[in-house]
Structure formats: structure tokens, C-alpha cells
Write a protein that binds this DNA or RNA. Structure first.
Length: 491
RNA sequence: CGGGGUGUAGCGUAGCCUGGUAUCGCGCCACAUUUGGGAUGUGGAGGUCGUAGGUUCGAAUCCUGCCACCCCGACCA
């Protein structure tokens, strides 16, 4: 395969697509808008899943699975939810194919029309709340804390690998509670888990906030989110956690009997992150050489590349390489010895850089003789000679340093691209020329938000949590405002 | 749905204007020499040129329809 190089600074979008393909993460399938996630990309997703799943379970959640298909009638029950999703639903109308007698082609059998059409889930609130009705009778049945790992389908007009595909993988948590307070605590707890995961595992700094009414999830009372800033200055919503109030309980008639024997509607939350996080990961850290993976997420944390000329050297070098690999594995590090003898060391260096492997160890006859190895880190491209005896205690430390450095770099970038402005001119200048988050006053109305979006292409990403309150004037209308909100152009 | 682009070997491409069944690179296979930053040589395999039709003695090339995908916008996670 010939690697086509595209510079990040020249064409960010082409660079991104190229990287996804070259790093072997995913490729376009022959199905419009759908991708094939390749083994290496899927391995990264599995690491994300494992980290998230552990956190979900530590906070008392259980996994379950609900159907892919949702009867159309379920969908019509929550009005704003329907409005939000109707335009992008795939619908199953028939259940059988047949061979056309004239053309001999496979066609949909018109006699096999479904009594009730089925919607391919774009999200599962409706089918889950329809199910919860039968699970919940008493306050003793609450809370219900469930998560599901699933695929969903949203018929988007325009797609982009990982960031927006017609079918995507995600997790969706759906919880039911006796009180609004408890549901709100759950909503915020899950937001905190997402933020912790993003910052400590993905090494991406995020801003926690609340969505404006325009950006709120269809059917939610309040949508909380984490927002990240990509290297091209565009924001990316990386996860959402919704306080659904009693909207779905009312739509699906889910009530419970309180301790005082009174029937009350149940309070709900839902929360999710998707394979979009793969996009966030790529766009936060990677460079012209390829992917840069934070060690805590890398399927391979250390690659060992043996270098040899003669057969006897190969034996000796591999022996050492395998023994070092064994030592590192005992430290819980994921190590691969790249002993392919049909690729040159130079090729392997480049390939593992492309794939974002955090640490590379090269070992040749010279090293064997000196009892050393060459250690190179992916994030800074620094190389150092290390005594082999130091590997065991220095490599775990190095991996941690890389994790921290990648995060710090992303944090610095974001700090340098977070602007506070007070006039419309400054606002546009920040968006057009500086790029990034822009903190500005807004009069709080949907109309103004719409107008700002139309004029600047920027949306309100969020109202940061614990936002500082200060009097000011709306950036567009000049009307009084009590706080700044975060704007950005977004994916 | 608008605007742009692409479709030729696994991948990337030349050829198209000016018709004569196809170029080059990477990859693949074999052998040899190589291996501390994407190795080299020699030999070899691989293509109904997206699809349907038309013009023509003859179409990758000209004409018409269709399809697919990508990119930019509107919609959205």
C-alpha cells in the first residue's frame, strides 16, 4: 500500500480521512454512509468500552439489551422526541424477498407487508420506557440503572468516518428514579464519568456544560454535555447526559406507588457516547506522521523492533527482545515484538508511528553488546538510549509521562483557543481568524441564538457548569445578559 | 436536496481533447543480495477500463441514460 501523505495544516479534512484509512482504523464500505471498522480501530473502541463499562458498573449500572426494531406507534408517543428524530429514521416495511418471475431478480415481496412498520432505533428511549412500564410498580423497583451497548441508525444527509455515520456504535444508559433530585444527581454523575474518561483516558480536556434549548436532546428537560476542541479549532460534542424529567414516564404511562401508597410518574435519565469518540481522539492528538494514542488507550503500548543482519544476530536479538517483552508484560504493559522479517526496520518505525504506538524500542546487535536499547516516544519523537536493566521501572513511568504530556498539550491548545469577547466584530474575528471557543454574552433567547448561528455559523456549545455570573450585553442584540456562554463552530 | 469531483489490477494513477482492447508506481509471488528511519536487482502473476445503450469496421476514448462513492453546504451526535 502506498501511503499518501497529506499535511494537517494544508487540508484538515483530507488529512483526517487519510489518517483513518492509513492507520488502519476504518474504511468506507459499499453501503452509503456506513463504515467498516477495522481490527485496529475496533481494538481502540474496545479499550474505550472496557474503561467506560467498568465505570458504569462501579456506579451500580447493569448491561442489558433491547431490540433493534421499534414499532412505529411507540415513536409517536413523545411529541418532541418524534420531532427530533422523524427526519432521520430508517423504516422496515416488509419481511420477505422473492424472485420476480419475469425479471428473475430479487425483489421485495409485496405480499409481505408488515402490519405495523418498524423503526430501526435511532436511540432507544421509547422501547425501553415501554418496557419499564411493566418492570415498575413500586418504589421498591427503583431505581433502575441500565446501560446497553448497541448500534443505532440515523439517516444523516452527510457522513464522515467516525464523526457521523449512518450506523454507529454507542452505549446508551437509561435510568428510572423515584425523585427528580435523584435523577438529576444521576445525570450529573454520568456527565462526570464521561469527563473523567475523556480527560484521564482519552487525554482530551473537556468543558462540562448545559445545552441551550435549541441544542437540547429531543424529549429532554435538560441536556448536559462535554465539549472538546479539535486541532482545527472546531468544537466536538463528545458525550451527553440527559435529565428527561417525567416526559417519557408520562408518554408511556410509567408510574410507581410511593411508600405513602400514592401513584407517581417516574423520573428518567439517559446518557450516551459513541464511536464519535474515535474521531475526537484522532483530531485531538494526531500529527502529520499519523495517529498519536494516549498510552492508557493504546492496544499496543510498546512495540519492540529487532534489528539484525545475519542469522545468528537475529537469534540473539530476538532472544533479548522477547525477554524484554516478557519483563514489560509482567508490568501489565501491552507489548508487541515486531519480528516480521520481510519488512525493514525503517518501514516498521514508520508504520507504528502511523498507528500511534506510544513507545518504540529498537534493539540491534550493538545494543545486545552494550546491554542497551533505543527508546523512542511517539508524542515528542524523542529518542534515548536506555540501559536494558532500566526498562522494567522506566517504561511504565515513561508511558505515564506520555499520557500526561498528550493531555497537557491538548489543554494548552484549548487554553490558547478560548477567547473572551464583548463585541460582534471581536466575535467574528475570533471565529474566523483565531478559531476555537468563544465566550460571549447572549440574551438567552432562541431567536438570538438562531440569528447568531445564521450570521456566524457558530452555535452555543454549552453554558459551562458553575458558570460565573456577570452582567453584560448580548453580543448580537445588546440586550442585558447575566452570563457568558461558549460559542464555537462545531462538527 | 443544491454545488463540485471521481469511477481503468488490491491501492494510487496515465491514456480520453486528436477512437486501433491499456501506462507507470506501490503492493503481491519467486529467487538473490539486504536490514540502526519507509531496501535493491532479476523474473512473474494480476484488468469484461462503474453500468446499460448508441455511433463506428473498430470505443477506456465520442454521444445518451443510469448507478455508486467522495468532497463542500443545508440537517444532525
Amino acid at each position: 500500500m502506498e501511503i499518501k501523505k497529506v499535511k494537517r495544516s494544508e487540508d484538515y479534512s483530507a488529512w483526517y480521512n487519510n489518517l483513518v484509512k492509513n492507520a488502519d482504523l476504518a474504511e468506507h464500505s459499499d453501503v452509503k454512509g456506513c463504515m467498516v471498522i477495522k481490527p485496529y480501530g475496533y481494538a481502540i473502541w474496545e479499550k474505550m468500552q472496557a474503561e467506560l463499562d467498568r465505570r458504569f458498573k462501579e456506579t451500580g449500572h447493569q448491561n442489558a439489551y433491547f431490540p433493534l426494531f421499534i414499532p412505529k406507534s411507540f415513536f409517536t408517543k413523545e411529541a418532541s422526541h418524534v420531532d427530533g428524530f422523524a427526519k432521520e429514521c430508517a423504516v422496515v416495511t416488509h419481511y420477505r424477498l422473492k424472485v420476480d418471475e419475469v425479471t428473475k431478480e430479487i425483489v421485495v415481496d409485496p405480499d409481505a407487508k408488515l402490519e405495523e412498520e418498524l423503526i430501526v432505533r435511532p436511540t432507544s428511549e421509547t422501547i425501553i420506557w415501554n418496557t419499564y412500564r411493566s418492570w415498575i410498580q413500586s418504589y421498591r423497583d427503583l431505581p433502575i440503572l441500565i446501560n446497553q451497548w448497541a448500534n443505532v441508525v440515523r439517516w444523516e444527509m452527510r457522513t464522515r468516518l467516525f464523526l457521523r455515520t449512518t450506523e454507529f456504535l454507542w452505549q446508551e444508559g437509561h435510568t428510572a428514579h423515584a425523585t427528580a433530585e435523584e435523577a438529576i444527581i444521576e445525570t450529573k454523575q454520568m456527565l462526570d464519568i464521561y469527563a473523567d474518561f475523556a480527560e484521564n483516558i482519552l487525554a482530551i480536556p473537556v468543558i462540562k456544560g448545559i445545552k441551550s434549548a435549541n441544542e437540547r436532546f429531543a424529549g429532554a428537560v435538560e441536556t448536559y454535555c462535554i465539549e472538546g476542541l479539535m486541532q482545527d479549532g472546531k468544537a466536538l460534542q463528545m458525550g451527553t447526559s440527559h435529565f428527561l424529567g417525567q416526559n417519557f414516564a408520562k408518554a408511556f404511562d410509567v408510574k410507581y406507588v410511593t411508600r405513602e401508597n400514592v401513584k407517581e410518574y417516574v423520573w428518567a435519565t439517559s446518557w450516551g457516547v459513541s464511536t464519535r469518540l474515535m474521531g475526537a481522539l484522532i483530531m485531538s492528538h494526531s500529527d502529520d506522521e499519523g495517529l498519536v494514542l494516549p498510552p492508557r488507550l493504546a492496544p499496543i503500548q510498546v512495540v519492540i523492533i529487532p534489528i539484525f543482519k545475519k542469522a545468528e544476530e537475529k537469534i540473539l536479538v530476538l532472544e533479548h527482545a522477547n525477554s524484554y517483552a516478557g519483563l514489560l508484560k509482567k508490568q501489565g504493559i501491552s507489548v508487541k515484538v515486531d519480528d516480521r522479517d520481510y519488512q525493514s526496520p525503517g518501514f516498521k518505525f514508520a508504520e507504528h508511528e502511523l498507528k500511534g504506538v506510544p513507545v518504540r524500542i529498537a534493539i540491534g546487535p550493538r545494543d545486545v553488546q552494550n546491554g542497551t536499547v533505543e527508546v523512542a516516544r511517539r508524542d515528542t519523537k524523542e529518542k534515548m538510549i536506555m540501559d536494558a536493566t532500566d526498562l522494567e521501572h522506566k517504561i511504565p513511568h515513561l508511558l505515564e509521562q506520555i499520557q500526561i504530556n498528550i493531555y497537557q498539550r491538548a489543554l494548552d491548545y484549548r487554553s490558547e483557543h478560548l477567547f473572551t469577547v464583548d463585541t460582534w466584530e471581536e466575535f467574528l474575528d475570533a471565529l474566523d481568524n483565531k478559531t476555537g471557543f468563544v465566550s460571549a454574552h447572549w440574551d438567552g433567547t432562541s431567536e438570538t441564538e438562531e440569528n447568531i448561528k445564521e450570521k456566524s455559523k457558530a452555535t452555543i456549545r454549552c453554558i459551562p457548569l458553575n458558570n460565573h455570573q456577570e452582567d453584560g450585553k448580548c453580543i448580537l442584540t445588546g440586550k442585558p445578559s447575566t452570563q457568558r456562554v461558549l460559542f464555537a463552530r462545531a462538527y
